[in-house]
Design a protein around this nucleic acid. Structure first.
Length: 427
DNA sequence: TCTGGGGTCCTAGGACCC
DNA sequence: TCTGGGGTCCTAGGACCC
């Protein structure tokens, strides 16, 4: 029987910001989405104030000032680096590890069973080491299925079962689980979102216990095979394996809202060219080729009073490629076809689709010289990796890029830029 | 003034094939 | 009078996750 542990960092982005700025230790901290748009992470103090996740920041300004909330722009370089460190520490506990998201990993622990006094003690050791080595707080949920491990993690965070921070369902009696699941809302279950939760409630299924004990076959016919799997996992029947090897992406998206509205085609072209450059770099990193490219643009949907326009068009390519020059040409062609003058554009994006492994490349009579192209792209990626993204780019991506997103509250690259490494002054 | 970005999976329906 | 069965591929839309 497998044993899964889900390790989840508490208030991850907000905790990363606090880590390098001790003055903020007891201070309410939020982290904002791109363009300083919405609240995407909250420290414990902010949650206690009742400030909701996902709200637009400009609507919270007054409240924030009143409570002394400190806001940060998203500093992805910092969060990604801290995330890698967490994974590195976790891999010291078991080689069987799936990095599920930037702040969560699943561990498979059946191998350590019997080598430790209890799984809960093992979970506590994980918590302790991450606290000691990285200064971050995590919660650990342990159970025989992934869905139950997620639920156990929820209980660990809320202190609903067992000690604070670690929750082990494998030692719970059926009666204990019944009592616990009776008081957890069905919407807390992994895979049950807003819509399905509302439909379940209307059928009289309100608690996790009710969902677990519902008829799986009829749920399958009324919803889908996905929900049936969830129910079976709640019963302890493991349907989802640990995915130790991250599969290649099937599509790569790069899109952004602009720092201000754009009206002219030439500025939109710069943005699209720079989005393509970013997506193509990811494409080459996973050694794939794109067979199609999609471009979209749209006006601000939150301003229904101004003229609205949005359009997305997908273009199948004559030949699959990962060459930024080719992809840029095709994408700009699409952009010029869908651009309409007279609108204030708020956001644009590109999508690379129909991805295939480089090894499966179809030879072409008319294509570019593949060997030369690959060599050039390797040099481009090498330079940008070493000196920073955007160091070397196509002229079409622009020079000043004045449409770039706003990031007015960005913290330093504490762990990723030599000039920004924190300095400790001795008295 | 100001409202994020990047993904996956499943289903239904239509076109098409033999 | 009477019109099959089995399959693939593609797309759009909807749900979910972080």
């Amino acid at each position: 029987m497998p044993i899964f542990a889900l390790v989840d960092c508490n208030n991850f982005y907000a905790s990363c910001e606090k880590l390098f700025n001790p003055k903020l230790k007891h201070c309410p901290v939020v982290v904002l989405s791109n363009n300083d748009g919405c609240v995407v992470a909250r420290s414990a103090e902010v949650k206690a104030l009742g400030i909701a996740m996902g709200g637009p920041w400009f609507q919270l300004r007054d409240q924030a000032q009143q409570h002394g909330i400190v806001a940060f722009s998203s500093n992805y370089a910092l969060y990604a680096d801290m995330s890698n460190r967490v994974v590195q520490v976790l891999s010291g506990f078991t080689p069987q590890l799936e990095v599920y998201s930037i702040d969560e990993s699943f561990l498979e622990l059946s191998g350590v069973y019997g080598q430790t006094s209890s799984l809960a003690a093992y979970g506590e050791a994980i918590r302790q080491r991450i606290a000691d080595w990285l200064g971050l707080a995590v919660c650990v949920g342990i159970a025989p299925t992934k869905t139950l491990a997620k639920l156990a993690n929820h209980c660990a965070k809320k202190g609903l079962f067992g000690g604070a921070g670690v929750c082990d369902f494998t030692t719970a009696s059926p009666a204990e689980l019944d009592r616990l699941f009776e008081h957890i809302e069905v919407g807390e279950v992994w895979g049950v979102g807003r819509k399905i939760s509302a439909r379940l409630q209307s059928m009289g299924i309100h608690s996790v216990r009710q969902l677990r004990d519902a008829d799986a076959a009829s749920l399958r016919s009324r919803f889908s095979v996905v929900l049936e799997r969830t129910v079976r996992e709640l019963r302890g029947d493991s349907c989802m394996d640990l995915e130790e090897i991250t599969p290649d992406k099937q599509q790569i998206i790069s899109s952004r809202s602009f720092g201000r509205l754009l009206y002219n085609l030439d500025e939109l072209e710069e943005a699209v060219a720079s989005y393509i450059a970013k997506a193509a770099e990811k494409l080459r990193a996973q050694k794939s080729l794109a067979g199609a490219v999609q471009v979209y643009l749209r006006t601000n949907v939150f301003k229904p009073e101004v003229p609205q326009y949005q359009r997305a068009v997908m273009l199948p390519l004559p030949e699959a490629t990962s060459d930024t020059r080719m992809l840029t040409q095709w994408a700009l062609k699409v952009l010029r076809a869908i651009y309409r003058p007279g609108f204030g554009y708020h956001k644009a994006g590109v999508m690379l689709l129909d991805l295939t492994p480089l090894l499966n490349r179809q030879a072409s009579f008319f294509g570019v010289d593949d060997a030369r192209s690959e060599k050039l792209m390797r040099v481009l990626d090498g330079i940008n990796h070493r000196y920073g993204r955007n160091t070397l780019r196509l002229g079409s991506a622009g020079v000043t890029q004045s449409w770039q997103m706003r990031r007015e509250h960005l913290s330093p690259g504490y762990t990723t830029h030599w000039e920004e490494v924190p300095v400790v002054k001795a008295n």
